[in-house]
Amino acid sequence: MSAIPPKEGWYYTKIAKEEKIWIGLALVVCLGLFATMILWHVYGKQNPSFTTYKTNVHEFNALYDAFVEKYKVGEEHGFAVVKPDPNTDVFMRAQIWRWEPVLILKKGESYRFHLASTDFLHGFSLQPINMNFMVYPNHDYVLTFTPTEAGEYKVICNEFCGVGHHLMVGKIVVEE
């Protein structure tokens, strides 16, 4: 199917050396890109979780409530302020249109974050570091974070989730 049909039997002609080299180079580039994709997943700065659990709204809410009750240290604009112990599981909930609770973490300590949505698809976007993860309902995404710099970080939703999407801003404070 071309304007100038090739000669009959062209499939059986020998491939020229130059063409073989080009095919080889293209294959090397393809394999290189494929390897980069895998290596980036392991060594890149934004490594998505290899751990995801199946959950439901009821179960995740129960875990979230128990977590907040255990580590709550105050309130800010109606949001619970929670200071979990280092090396513990941290539960963060996304729902229209809030990321909660406000977290106070310690610099240099690891935390195992559990992220879940209780309604629609939301996005966990940690700013200004710009780390981004999708958060689906009924799935618990586990991410291990080790804050390396003290300061105040925002968690914004980067998946459009309705009229209040732009108001969906959470806060993480990292202390020295």
């Binding site: 199946k54 959950t55 179960e59 129960a62 875990l63 128990a66 599981d89």
Partner: peptide
């Protein structure tokens, strides 16, 4: 094939 949240983890949080 997603696993559920481990029971040990639930116990440690819910007590």
């Amino acid at each position: 094939n997603l696993p559920p949240i481990p029971e040990d983890l639930k116990k440690s949080i819910l007590g």
